[in-house]
Amino acid sequence: MGSVLPGSVREFRELARARLGEFPHSEVSDAGGVRRAAVLLCVVADEDGAPAVIVIKRAYRGRNAGQWGSPGGRLDEGETAEQAVLRELREELGLVATPADLLGRLDDFPASSGFVITPFVAALPEGAEPKPSPDEVHSVHMVRLDRLAADDVPHWVAPHEAVRQPELRAEAASVPEHRGLLQMRLAPNMTIHAPTGALLWQFRAVVLLGLPHTDARVAHFTQPDWTQH
């Protein structure tokens, strides 16, 4: 691994602010009545004090029922993406963040659901503890940054091998990135596809690994059929 990983939320905050400040994120224009959503890749200290990004499994009701995701949702009328992501964090997880906690943003992601997702990155002070809303969140998971950065997390498989958790089929041999489907295999029962998987992949590439921006684009990543609903 060519990058030294942050050992604390404070170190992560400094690293993320610097790397995101140099990252030329791409934006999708509002032309054509685009529907917009915003999500937050939110880093907190886990129970051992290690920096970890929050991943949620959505409640088994409504839109995206039971899917893996990041805190966030659609923009209300008249709301900016920044305002929306802070509101959604509070509503879904009971966590209060301010604009100063936002460290930067990644590329807009055109989801197959018809929404353009704007991802932000944040770090919250030590002691921040999620209190999930049962109406919106089934479970909350802390993914340590060293796990997210591990070499065995990203896998590329043939699109027909996209299956829901926890079952996984045999891996396709050497599927080229531009033709394959990404699986972020974070734990035995935690395999995440695009769009959330793509955002985690870009967060990993840009912030944790410090890859050149030309090697870290994700808008073209394939999405499974079930993410359209």
Rank of each mutant, 00 (worst) to 15 (best):
F109H: 08
V34L: 03
Q165H: 08
R61V: 04
H193E: 06
M1S: 15
H138N: 09
C42E: 11
T227L: 10
G73N: 00
R179E: 15
L200T: 04
H160K: 11
V153H: 06
R35M: 05
I192N: 05
R217F: 02
R17A: 14
P119A: 01
A149N: 04
E88D: 12
P6L: 03
V96R: 14
V4H: 11
L208Y: 08
W201V: 05
Q202Y: 10
R179G: 10
H25R: 09
G49T: 07
A219M: 12
N189E: 15
S3P: 11
G180F: 06
Q223G: 01
V4Y: 07
A97I: 02
A65M: 01
L93D: 07
G127R: 03
F221S: 04
P134H: 03
D225R: 13
A97S: 12
P71G: 04
F203W: 05
G127M: 03
D46S: 00
E177A: 14
A16F: 02
P24C: 04
G197N: 08
A111N: 13
I117E: 11
S26Y: 03
A149S: 12
S113T: 10
A38F: 09
P99Q: 11
P6C: 05
I56V: 15
A45R: 02
D48H: 14
A122V: 04
W226V: 13
G2E: 11
G127F: 07
A194R: 06
D30S: 14
E27P: 08
A31F: 04
H155T: 11
E79F: 02
D108G: 05
L95Y: 08
A37S: 14
M142H: 15
R217V: 11
E77Q: 14
G2A: 12
G69C: 02
P119F: 00
D48G: 15
Q223Y: 01
G180Y: 06
V140G: 07
R35L: 13
M142N: 03
P134R: 08
G73K: 01
L89Q: 13
D152E: 13
A84H: 01
E88A: 14
H141E: 04
Q165I: 03
G33T: 03
V96M: 06
L168N: 09
T196E: 11
E136V: 09
R164P: 00
E79G: 03
H160M: 07
T80S: 15
A123D: 09
P51K: 01
T227Q: 13
S8E: 10
E167L: 15
H25F: 14
P51W: 05
A50I: 02
R10P: 01
R63W: 12
D101W: 08
F23Y: 15
A16D: 05
A173Q: 13
V4P: 04
G2F: 07
A52V: 07
R13V: 04
L148G: 03
P188F: 10
T118I: 10
L186Q: 09
S139P: 00
K131H: 09
G2S: 13
L103H: 00
L168H: 12
V143E: 05
R63V: 14
M1A: 15
F12R: 08
Q183R: 15
A65N: 01
V207M: 13
R13N: 01
P132E: 00
A38M: 09
R169N: 08
L182C: 02
G73L: 04
P166E: 09
R217T: 14
D152N: 09
M1I: 10
S29V: 00
V96S: 14
A37T: 04
L40F: 01
T222M: 04
